[in-house]
Simulated scan of single mutants.
Amino acid sequence: MASFHFELVSPEKMLFSGDVESVVVPGADGDFQVFAGHAPVMSTLHVGVLKIAGNTNAPQRVFVRGGFADVNDSGLTILAEQAVDLAEVKSDQLMQDIRDLEEDVADAKTDAERARAQAKLEGLKALQLAVAH
């Protein structure tokens, strides 16, 4: 099967750059799969899991939350607001982080603090759901 260049970038780091055979992308209008020669398209991302095939060096399943996907003649580039390799998630630590954020939401002194903590909590709960599947 033909391959194409794929880059996955988060604010913290470049998570992957290399050739792959396909990537399933959680687009805002629904999941779509990219292969070599895919028509150009741009899409925002919704919360979901990227599924990467055809490269043993690539993380196979990556949780993403927010961002953009750009398919062009050069390949696929994903700029994700949050990206986590599901193979690296430790369930015990994730559960503790969720409990801590639930306390932060309950203890927030201002609406702004509560909203920030709630947004982080929702992100971790989405990650927890992705890990479970």
Rank of each mutant, 00 (worst) to 15 (best):
A58N: 02
S74K: 14
A83R: 11
E21V: 13
A39S: 15
S10E: 15
G27F: 05
L50A: 03
I52T: 03
H5V: 09
E113M: 07
R65P: 00
A58G: 03
K109G: 11
P40Y: 02
L86Y: 09
F6N: 00
P11E: 03
E12V: 14
E122Q: 14
T110K: 02
L94F: 12
R65F: 05
F4I: 10
A130G: 09
R99L: 13
F35E: 07
L15S: 04
L127A: 01
G27M: 12
V9Q: 08
F68M: 15
F63T: 04
A80Y: 03
D70E: 15
V24H: 04
G18T: 08
D100E: 14
L50H: 03
R116L: 11
D73N: 08
L101N: 06
F35Q: 07
A87N: 13
R99M: 10
V62Y: 11
D107V: 02
I78H: 06
G67D: 07
A87T: 11
N57Y: 08
P59Y: 05
A83F: 08
M95C: 05
K120V: 00
F6T: 01
G75L: 04
G66P: 06
L86T: 05
D70C: 07
K90I: 12
V49D: 03
S10T: 15
E21Y: 03
A132T: 03
Q93S: 07
A87S: 14
L101P: 08
A83I: 15
T77L: 13
G123S: 14
L101I: 02
K109V: 14
D100C: 03
A39K: 11
S17G: 09
G18P: 04
L15F: 04
V41H: 10
F16S: 05
G37Y: 02
H5A: 06
F6C: 05
H133R: 15
A69S: 09
K51F: 09
E88A: 15
Q96L: 15
L15R: 07
D70R: 15
L124A: 01
A115K: 06
K90G: 03
Q96G: 02
V64H: 04
A130E: 09
D97G: 00
R114E: 07
Q33R: 12
V49R: 00
D31S: 07
K120P: 06
L50N: 02
D29T: 05
A53V: 11
A132S: 15
N55D: 13
L129Y: 11
F6I: 12
D104K: 15
A130C: 10
K109E: 14
S43P: 00
G67V: 10
K109F: 10
D31E: 09
K125F: 01
L94E: 04
E7Y: 01
P26D: 13
D111G: 07
F68N: 11
G37S: 06
V62A: 11
F16I: 08
G66I: 12
V71S: 01
F68S: 12
L8W: 01
A80S: 08
H5W: 00
M95I: 05
L121G: 07
P11K: 00
F16L: 05
A87R: 13
D92N: 11
P59K: 06
A36V: 04
